[in-house]
């Protein structure tokens, strides 16, 4: 066992976990934040994307111990009370999801993409979401959602 300390969605968290605990298990099982999903569990699908110190990463491919002292943001941490994050709102308005399984990862990935890049073209968005797999939508409405959110977020 080891003690892991990190700030998750603005709240300081400290837990004893087995050494080989993955960050995604720490979030889902230890902290009960099940919005972050495990899809492929092989670093391909991006359903487990979260922000680690402001950068999107695959929580299934990082040990909780590697996030010691880090600031972590999950899908649960981006809305402002009852007001959805502009990216969440855009997915809602543009039908950017069907089953919703990939959505938390898509939203976290897209937020970083828009925050780091201005004037994204459709191609930039499609390339930027390469690490996120959706099996329902065919991606068109996801791209539309990101474009709409980018306008609202000043991208």
């Amino acid at each position: 066992m080891l003690t892991v300390t990190m700030k998750v969605n603005g709240i300081n968290s400290r837990h004893d976990v087995p050494d080989n605990t993955l960050l995604v298990s720490f979030l889902r099982e230890t902290m009960g934040l099940t919005g972050t999903h495990v899809g492929c569990d092989t670093s391909q699908c991006g359903a487990c994307n979260i922000h680690l110190n402001g950068e999107s990463v695959k929580a299934c491919s990082i040990l909780a111990a590697q996030a010691e002292g880090a600031e972590v943001t999950t899908i649960e941490g981006i809305a402002n009370g009852d007001t959805l994050h502009p990216m969440q709102q855009a997915f809602h308005e543009n039908h950017g999801l069907q089953c919703g399984f990939c959505t938390p990862g898509m939203v976290m990935s897209a937020i970083e993409l828009v925050e780091k890049n201005k004037n994204l073209s459709e191609r930039d968005i499609r390339e930027g979401l390469e690490g996120n797999i959706c099996r329902c939508t065919g991606y068109h409405n996801i791209v539309k959602s990101v474009q709409a959110a980018a306008e609202k977020m000043g991208g």
Binding site: S43, G46, L52, S56, V57, K58, S61, I62, E112, G131
Partner: peptide, 9 residues
């Protein structure tokens, strides 16, 4: 290389 999440790590 890989995708953005891989390049971040």
């Amino acid at each position: 290389i890989g995708d953005r999440q891989v390049r971040n790590r």
